[in-house]
């Protein structure tokens, strides 16, 4: 799987406005809806929130990976959002989350989503890469971190 086949400027924002978990997830979902990658917004939102209730997707170092499985997509779709001030995402290390990488995958398979996240995590493993993401002003600058 290639990250560049999944991500494009239309699904990247550097200015998330919400200050709550549900708000951030809704905003990210709107990106996918505007890019016409998702149709049934409400069902997808509930799938994503359902997943958050089972186990928070806020991991370490300000990175969160909200994701869900839904019949509303046929292939893996993903989007990226940045919020410099951070949001309380109930993350593992207790730090506020700033970099959000959200994926939606079809119901029957988790592999593509795991593969995609594994590839993304290789890129943002370093402090330097995460700093570049936080300082990005445009979608293009964000994608540049992933070599796109």
């Amino acid at each position: 799987m290639k990250i560049k086949n999944i991500l494009s400027p239309a699904v990247v924002t550097t200015s998330l406005k919400s200050t709550t978990k549900e708000g951030v997830i809704s905003e990210l979902l709107d990106l996918l809806v505007s890019a016409k990658l998702v149709t049934d917004r409400d069902a997808v939102l509930s799938a994503l929130m359902d997943r958050e209730r089972k186990m928070s997707t806020g991991i370490q170092h300000g990175v969160a990976i909200p994701h869900g499985k839904t019949s509303a997509v046929k292939n893996l779709v993903a989007c990226i959002g940045i919020k410099k001030d951070g949001v309380d995402f109930a993350s593992l290390d207790g730090e506020p989350s700033r970099i959000f990488i959200m994926t939606l995958s079809p119901l029957d398979r988790v592999g593509p989503h795991v593969q995609f996240l594994a590839e993304v995590s290789m890129v943002i493993k370093t402090e330097e890469a995460r700093e570049r993401l936080l300082n990005a002003k445009t979608a293009q600058e964000v994608l540049a971190v992933f070599g796109i």
Binding site: R51, K54, M55, V110, V114, Q115, L117, A118, S121, M122
Partner: peptide
């Protein structure tokens, strides 16, 4: 090491399923 992230994420997904 290069496959670590994938394995960790797969394990986590399976554990979430297990929780369900």
């Amino acid at each position: 090491r290069e496959h670590e992230a994938f394995v960790r994420l797969m394990l986590m997904e399976s554990l979430v399923d297990f929780q369900e």
